[in-house]
Design a protein around this nucleic acid. Structure first.
Lengths: 229, 229
DNA sequence: TGTCAACTGTTGATATAACAAAATCCAAGG
DNA sequence: CCTTGGATTTTGTTATATCAACAGTTGACA
């Protein structure tokens, strides 16, 4: 039953596989906020023992993607609206900063690549394809941030996104799911990049985050209301 | 040999004790950058088994305070100068933002409390007491950030500080240890808070971080030079 | 019928054993 | 003196057993 292990190579061990899969699923909004992650259940899912699962979960707790309750239960956080608002402000600072840097330091090639996702987003929205919208939106944002050439900043932003991945779960099930219309903001960012105008890029991203978060806050209120019923 | 465990209460379990102690020691610069953390050694130090130590270390890895090498060895990161510079810029954004918020939202009582640490810092510097300087400096900064009333932001900033805690290890052993003279910047922040001038507070903190990081970069260069010898 | 205590299953915490990859060491050979 | 090859030790990985806290259930008794 003991799995072959590879150390030293880039080959992922079991703990890392579990970690990666959980990240993926969290990002894709497959876990509801509040969902508990039972060690033995997750272990069974992967056909693994507790140890690698503990490793993965503890790492996620360190990243604040999961939280450990006072009873030591690990679960997907249900942020308070105030917390979502706080994270929105932090994201506006950090991602705005990254966009401004990108406008200064990005290459024309990168910008062309970014435009593809910008168009893909608009196209997907017109087609009403929610999944593609999500994907294109994410690619658009992260390609902008990558153009800032600040790897650690990119990591931090990824962490913030992962953190509200589960909230997209809500969004995707929300009655009022508004299919956010970020086209204008994305377009503004795109123009700012081409014109190498850092402040305009910053402001475009800030607006995008500002508006998009409103939907999340609404969905969250809806969840709370439902959980009282 | 099995330790009594308390679940549900706020009482820390073994893994958490290990985690807290490591945080403390890292923050105090007791670990050199590049130091390896051997599972069994740490476990022996705490008279514990591997499991709780794995828990603590994995969490620290998640927080990017420690890093896992390709051979799965966990160690204190030795950042490249470029990384230190990147983190400096991120800190300037984030901590500058927090200071600006503090100027808007902090209470007069908080400001009075902050002034104590500001004075303590100046006093410790004149007395040449390096340890007290460090302490007063940290208290000063974090009290400012706490006044912004953004708990998650505070967490993130703590993470960034923890991350270059080990670099203070270098500083404390550096031949050119410059005993940074942050008095002016601290004073500027202090004035900005009292006058409720967010932009001045932001700029004061930004300057402080900017200058203070230079010392770290110098010490880092010194380390690299020494490690080549 | 309502209440409470004992029982039982669940779940996280810890310790430990077995294993494999890396690292280290040491001796033989060039 | 340096290299090289294998033996030995170190060290991370995984699985597993045991224990204590917790939750839910059942059943006895008032």
């Amino acid at each position: 039953m003991s799995e072959r292990v590879a150390r030293g190579t880039g080959e992922p061990h079991l703990a890392e596989k579990v970690y990666n899969k959980l990240c993926q699923d969290l990002q894709d909004g497959l876990y509801a906020p509040g969902a508990k992650l039972i060690l033995r259940d997750v272990a069974a899912e992967f056909g693994a023992s507790l140890t690698p699962v503990r490793d993965a979960l503890n790492r996620l707790v360190g990243e604040r993607v999961l939280e450990m309750g006072s009873n030591r239960t690990i679960s997907v956080p249900i942020p308070l609206a105030a917390e979502v608002r706080e994270i929105r402000r932090i994201r506006m600072e950090l991602e705005g900063f990254a966009a401004a840097e990108a406008a200064s330091k990005g290459s024309a090639g990168e910008f062309a690549d970014i435009r593809v996702d910008c168009d893909a987003y608009a196209h997907a929205r017109r087609a009403g394809d929610a999944r593609r919208m999500l994907e294109a939106n994410r690619d658009f944002h992260f390609k902008v941030y990558a153009a800032a050439r600040m790897p650690f900043l990119l990591e931090m932003i990824k962490g913030l996104w992962l953190r509200n991945g589960p909230l997209q779960y809500l969004l995707s099930r929300s009655a009022t799911a508004p299919l956010e219309r970020s086209d204008d903001h994305h377009g503004a960012v795109m123009r700012a990049l081409d014109e190498r105008d850092p402040e305009a890029a910053r402001q475009g991203i800030r607006n995008d985050i500002d508006y998009a978060t409103n939907d999340i806050i609404l969905a969250l209120a809806e969840l709370r209301e439902k959980s009282l019923a």
